[in-house]
Amino acid sequence: MASGPILRLKGVSKAFRVGPRTLGRPRLLLRALSDVNLEVEAGTTLGIVGESGCGKSTLARIIVGLTQPDAGVVAYEGADLTDLHRRPPAVALGIQMVFQDPYSALNPRMRVGDTILEPLRVHKVVAPQEAPDERDRLLEIVGLSPALARRYPHELSGGQRQRVNIARALSVRPKVIVADEAVSSLDVSVQGQILNLFSDLRDQLGLTMIFVSHDLNVVDHLCERVAVMYLGRIVEEGRGSLLSQGARHPYTRGLASAVPQPIPGRRRVQPAIGGELPSPTNPPSGCVFRSRCPDVQPLCAEVAPTLDPMGPDHRAACHFPLTLRFETPGGRDAADDLTVSSTS
């Protein structure tokens, strides 16, 4: 499927003005994204992970066109989508979004069938007389009975609602689906059903997917590629497997080992990462992760590391990247990797 990047982000930055409006005093500048560069190959699934406030949702919204970046270029199949007001509608339809809360993303007063019919009609995806058949086909693709078309959102379960949202996103035949925490509000057993649906859709329709999530287990399961974000920057990018092994950035490894695993007898004494995310209105100098990094050196406060190649298809922004698996400077997570590799 890989046929060059379908989506390319170059130097994308976004800042928001926050805090109280006080006369004569400038409001604080929150840098949500700083110089993000990213390429997504057609037909692949990219996971974007990080703590809340790392900018992952802002990035998703910029890709879909819900937020205008301050600087940088967003290119989709070669077309420049940066200027929201000049996005050619036909091109813009190619990128669709599935939101976190499946209930608030649906109109409570519209039958779910009409929710799916509306984009079919507005964008003339099919001839008007074929629209009901297309609606039923979409419902079946996402594993719902066409009989549910007459129901209202409140009559459906959380999993069914998310399936309706996915059907609506698919109605305009997009090539890229951006899912922002699309399974976070679902129970584990239902979450598995929706994750399998995403895998099936990717395989059957050849979709490119961008999966924004704070749940590393989910991303690790679903995504071939992963970008790890911290304070508005991509700090590491590579194969999805780097969440379980081969991470070069100390943040990636710490984040991954903070995820509780349902395996008894792995209790650690120390937290994986101490401290909290610094304020994005006042980020640390140099490397933004240095205030929480177990391997911090004086250089880290002075020079910001760039996202450098660490091997084939692998980039990390760290002056002192982790080296061999069992020779980490702290030695703290080596045992974690051992546990994981023996159970996988």
Binding site: S189, E224, S344
Partner: peptide
Amino acid sequence: AALLASMPRKGERQARLRVIPGR
């Protein structure tokens, strides 16, 4: 057992998740 089997786990890639049917 089914709940444990339906959880995505670290280091297990790409395979379909086993799910509990229904709700």
